[in-house]
Nucleic acid binder design. Structure first.
Lengths: 249, 249
DNA sequence: CGAACTTTTGACAAGCATCAACACGTGTGG
DNA sequence: CCACACGTGTTGATGCTTGTCAAAAGTTCG
C-alpha cells in the first residue's frame, strides 16, 4: 500500500505558497521531506483516538473528517478536511491523538514521519510559521462550529455548514461557484451539526421546499445563495480568506 | 492606564517552561519583549471582533473569555482563559479578530506589540514551537467544546464544564483540589454551554440536589468528583496534561 | 438481483426555550 | 440610614423544537 514517489508534496507546497513567500531553500527542504503515498477507502482510518503519533499526514485527494466519541455511543464530527489540508498536525506535535481522523471518501494521503516534520519546523522559521497559520485558521473554524452548534437552530446550522463547504471548496478550486458534490451522508451531517439524522432530513427538505438548495444524489446546488447565507447566518470572515492572498514578510 | 514594568513576562515564561526547556538566550529574548501592563475591570474588552490586531496580550491576573455573536442577538462563549494564558495569538497572527475577548473578572494583562511577537517567533524556533503547542492545545479544547455542546445533554454539559475548570485551575496552581471560585455567572455558563440561563439554573440545582456539587455565592465545591466526572462524561486527556511535564527536544 | 446503506415518512415523547414574575444581595445616592 | 436600582439567582406555566422508534422506499454495488 505504501509507494514512495517523487514530488508528492508539490501540490501542498503550492497551497502553502498562496499564503506565504518561501525561499527556494525552504521549498527544497519541504519537497525533500520523506513522504510516501497511501491510498485509503471510504471510512479508512488515518488516526484513532489515543494513538501515539508516528506520522503526520496530508490529504492529497478526497475528503476526510475528524471526530470524537461522546458517552460511548454518540459521535461528534469536529471538522471536515479537503484536498491539501494537513490532517493531524495536532496529533503529531502533541504526541497522543485526542480524536480520530477518518476518510469521508476514498482518496490518497501523504505520510511523513513526525520527526521529519518537527525538524523542518525547527530549522525553517517560514515553514514553522505556515504551520502555525494553518493551525490558527483551524482554530478559527472550530470556534465558529462551537457557535454553530451552540447557538443556531437546526435549519440554520445545516445552512451554515453548506455555505462553509461552498466557500472552502471554491477557494481550493475544487468546485464551481454554486454547485458541489457533497461528500457527506445525512447521517454525517447530523454528527457534524449535533442533530439526529431524521431531523437533518426534514430540515434539508425544508431548505429544498423554500428554493434555497436542490439536491440530486450527492450533488448539491445552491439555488439562492443570499437566502442560504441569511438562514445560515453565514459570514465567511472566520475562514480568513484574506490569508489566501500572499502576505509580504 | 499603561505602565511599563520590568520582568512582567516572568510568570508567563515560567508557565511555558513547564512544557519546554529554553536556552538562556531564548529566555532572555522572551523577557526582553516590550510589554506594558494594563489593568482592566470586569467586562473590559481586550479585543473586539473585526478589530485589526496591533497588540498581543497575555493574561497576568484574573479570568477572561472569548466569544462570538450569533444572529445579532445570541452570544456563544468559545473559551475561558486563566492566568498565564495567551489571549489573542490567533488575532495577532491572522491580523483581523474573528471573535471578541473580554474580562470575566477584573485583572491585569500584558500588552505586547504584534510585530515583536512575530519577530521573536521567527528568530527563536523554541519559542515558535511553544506558541504552536499552546495553539494546538487550544484547538484540542475547542474540539471538546464542539462535542460538549453538540452531543451532551444539558446536565452533562454543565458537569463537563465544571470538571474542566477544576482540572485547569488546579494545574495552574490556582485552586485547591475540589473547590474553586467560579468566576462565571449562570448567564455566562449558559452562553458557554449553548443553553438558556433558566435551564442552567435548574440543572445546577439538580447537580446540587444529587450531592455532586455545592455552591456558596461564587465559590463552588465538588462533593462527588467521580459522580461529576461520570455525569459530565469527562476525561482530561484533551487538556493534554502530559504536556505540562517538560519534554526533551 | 439481492444485501447493505441511505433517504424518507409518521406518530409520539421529551428536553429545553420562552415569558413573566419574584427573591435576594450589593452598591449608590438622597 | 433608608430607598432604590441593578445584577443575579429562582420559580412556575406553557409550548415549540428536536429526539425517539419503527418501518418503508430508494440507491449503490458486488
Amino acid at each position: 500500500l505504501t509507494d514512495p514517489r517523487k514530488d508528492i508534496l508539490a501540490p501542498t507546497m503550492r497551497k502553502l505558497e498562496k499564503r506565504f513567500q518561501f525561499s527556494p531553500e525552504d521549498q527544497a527542504a519541504f519537497l525533500a521531506l520523506p513522504a510516501s503515498v497511501k491510498r485509503l477507502d471510504t471510512g479508512g482510518y488515518i488516526v484513532r483516538e489515543a494513538d501515539v503519533a508516528r506520522n503526520c499526514c496530508v490529504l492529497l485527494t478526497g475528503f476526510a473528517y475528524r471526530h470524537k466519541i461522546v458517552n460511548g455511543d454518540a459521535r461528534q464530527i469536529v471538522s471536515v478536511q479537503i484536498t491539501g489540508d494537513f490532517l493531524d498536525l495536532q496529533n503529531s506535535f502533541l504526541g497522543v491523538a485526542d480524536h480520530s481522523v477518518q476518510m469521508l471518501t476514498a482518496g490518497e494521503i501523504a505520510v511523513i514521519p513526525v520527526r521529519a516534520v518537527k525538524n523542518i519546523a525547527y530549522s525553517h522559521p517560514a515553514i514553522a510559521r505556515a504551520i502555525l497559520l494553518d493551525t490558527l485558521i483551524d482554530g478559527s473554524i472550530f470556534r465558529e462550529w462551537i457557535a454553530n452548534v451552540g447557538r443556531r437552530g437546526a435549519r440554520s446550522r445545516i445552512a451554515h455548514l453548506l455555505c462553509e463547504f461552498a466557500v472552502r471548496l471554491q477557494a481550493a478550486g475544487e468546485s464551481e461557484a454554486r454547485s458541489y458534490t457533497l461528500a457527506m451522508s445525512q447521517d454525517q451531517i447530523a454528527d457534524a451539526t449535533g442533530l439526529t439524522p431524521v431531523h437533518v432530513n426534514r430540515m434539508i427538505q425544508s431548505l429544498r421546499r423554500e428554493g434555497l438548495i436542490s439536491t440530486d444524489k450527492r450533488s448539491l446546488t445552491i439555488k439562492d445563495w443570499q437566502g442560504l447565507v441569511t438562514t445560515g447566518d453565514f459570514s465567511p470572515s472566520y475562514l480568513h480568506p484574506e490569508m489566501f492572498e500572499r502576505e509580504p514578510q
